[in-house]
Simulated scan of single mutants.
Amino acid sequence: MSIQSNIQDIRTRLEAACQRSNRDPNQVRLVAVSKTKPASQIEEAARAGQQLFGESYVQEFTDKREQVRLPVTWHFIGHLQSNKVKYLRGNVSMIHSVDRLSLAQEIDRQWQKIGETVDILLQVNLADEESKSGATEEAAEDLARRLATLPHLRLRGLMTLPPYCDNPEDVRPYFAQLRHLSERIAALNLPDVHMTELSMGMSHDFEVAVEEGATMVRIGTAIFGEREYP
C-alpha cells in the first residue's frame, strides 16, 4: 500500500474510534513519526494531506528540515538532551518529551533568546520502565508546578510511552491513568497551564488510546512501513 492509502486507512480507523467513544474526530491529530525516513517520504505524506510530523533525533531532524520543501509542522517527540535544545530553537512548534526541570529550563532559555514561547508536553513514565524516559506519576504534579513558572514555554498536556503489549486492551489502563493524571494537574489551576493535549498511542494501539482520550497519536510504521536504521 502507498503512504497515501496508509494515511487514509488510519484516518478512517481514527474516525471509527472517535465514533465509538462519542468524540469529535477533529479533536484528534495524527502525528506522522518520520524518524529514520527520508525527506522524500515526508513530502509524499505531505502531498497526501499530512501536515504534522514527529522527529526523535536532533541531528536527523535538522538535516531533514532543510530538505523538506513543502510547508509542514514539526514536533520533537524523542528523548532530548539539554545540550541539543539549541538546534530545535524556533524550529519546532511542540516538544513532547520534557521529563525534567533542567531540560525545561534550557528550553526556556533558548526560546528566550528569540523572544518566543514553545508548547511542551510533560512526559510521564507510568510503568517506571528503566529503558524509557519520563517523570514518575508521583513527581509529575510538582514538576508541572515548576514548569508553570517558566515564561518561554507553555505546558499543554502529557505524553506517555506505555509498555508494549501484543493485545492493545492490555495497554488501556495506562492511557486511562494518563488521562486521570492530566485531570489532576488541570485541577491545580496553574497559571498559563492548559491540559488540553494527551499524546499517546502508536501504530498498534492508537485506537484504544483515542477511546481513552488521546488528542495526538504518534504513528510511524502504519504510515511509512517498518523502521529503517541509518
Rank of each mutant, 00 (worst) to 15 (best):
P25E: 05
S34W: 00
V208Q: 12
R89D: 08
S34C: 05
V28A: 10
A48Y: 09
E141F: 03
R13G: 09
L121N: 01
F61W: 05
R227P: 04
P71H: 03
R179S: 12
S93V: 15
E212S: 10
C165H: 15
D192F: 04
V118F: 09
T149W: 04
L181N: 02
I223G: 08
T136Q: 07
A222G: 05
S133G: 10
S133Y: 13
L121S: 09
Q67H: 04
Y87D: 13
M94V: 14
E129V: 08
P162W: 10
Q19F: 13
L80M: 06
Q51A: 12
N83S: 10
I107Q: 03
Q67T: 07
A17Q: 01
E129L: 00
L103H: 11
V193Y: 07
D170I: 02
M159P: 04
H180G: 11
L121F: 13
H79S: 13
R100V: 01
K35C: 06
R29N: 12
L101I: 11
V28R: 04
G54L: 01
P71K: 10
R13Q: 12
I10R: 02
K132I: 01
R109Y: 04
E226I: 07
L30D: 07
L147I: 08
P25M: 11
A144I: 00
S97H: 08
V193F: 09
T215F: 09
R11K: 13
M159D: 07
L150N: 04
T136R: 11
A186F: 06
G157R: 08
A144L: 02
L126R: 01
T196K: 13
R154I: 13
V58K: 09
L150H: 03
